[in-house]
Computed example of a mutant assay.
Amino acid sequence: MMNELVQRLSQGNHPVEVSLRPKKTATALKERIDLGYIHIKFTNTQGGTELGVRLDPNACDWSQTDFDRPAGTIHLVGHLTLNYVKVKCIADVDLQTLEGQGHLEPIEPVSPAVIS
């Protein structure tokens, strides 16, 4: 049986937003991208699920974005471990609202977590 949260977030696209503190701006997002690490929040889970994602710069695409205006859509791809499952997080985010759609893809065969 696959981990329930990983399974749910791996099926179809889900509403997401980029979590930025203290200010939620395109400039703050660009700073996080330059550091190679962002937080993506899946907003349709109970209380929201915020994930720290290490970006894969070769898989991301910000060529259609203008961080100064801000305008365009940014394609973010990164990796993390959620509930002992290695996953890829893929999100397309509108630079004006910093919201969009995303999903997870398990990287390895998923087995139930063993708790001893």
Rank of each mutant, 00 (worst) to 15 (best):
Met2Val: 02
Asn3Val: 15
Asn3Pro: 11
Glu4Lys: 12
Leu9Thr: 09
Ser10Trp: 10
Ser10Gly: 12
Gln11Gly: 00
Gly12Ala: 12
Gly12Tyr: 08
Gly12Arg: 10
Asn13Gly: 08
Val16Gly: 05
Glu17Gly: 09
Glu17Thr: 11
Glu17His: 08
Val18Gly: 12
Val18Phe: 07
Lys24Ile: 01
Lys24Val: 02
Ala26Val: 00
Ala26Leu: 01
Ala28Asp: 14
Leu29Asn: 13
Glu31Arg: 07
Glu31Ile: 01
Glu31Val: 02
Arg32Gly: 00
Arg32Glu: 05
Arg32Ile: 00
Asp34Tyr: 06
Leu35Cys: 04
Leu35Met: 08
Tyr37Glu: 13
Ile38Arg: 12
Ile40His: 06
Lys41Asp: 13
Phe42Arg: 07
Phe42Pro: 01
Thr43Trp: 05
Thr45Lys: 04
Thr45Asn: 04
Gly48Glu: 14
Gly48Tyr: 11
Thr49Asn: 11
Gly52Val: 03
Val53Phe: 07
Val53Glu: 05
Val53Gly: 06
Val53Tyr: 05
Arg54Trp: 08
Asp56Trp: 01
Asn58Ile: 01
Ala59Thr: 14
Cys60Asn: 15
Thr65Pro: 02
Arg69Ala: 11
Pro70His: 09
Pro70Ser: 11
Ala71Trp: 00
Ala71Val: 00
Gly72Tyr: 00
Thr73Gln: 00
His75Ser: 14
Leu76Gln: 11
Val77Phe: 06
Gly78Glu: 13
His79Asp: 15
Tyr84Ala: 15
Tyr84Thr: 15
Tyr84Asn: 14
Val87Tyr: 07
Val87Asp: 05
Lys88His: 04
Ala91Cys: 09
Ala91Arg: 02
Asp94Thr: 00
Gly100Ser: 03
Gln101Phe: 12
His103Gln: 07
Glu105Gln: 09
Glu108Cys: 14
Glu108Ser: 15
Pro109Trp: 02
Ser111Leu: 11
Ala113Leu: 10
Val114His: 13
Ile115Ala: 11
Ile115Gln: 10
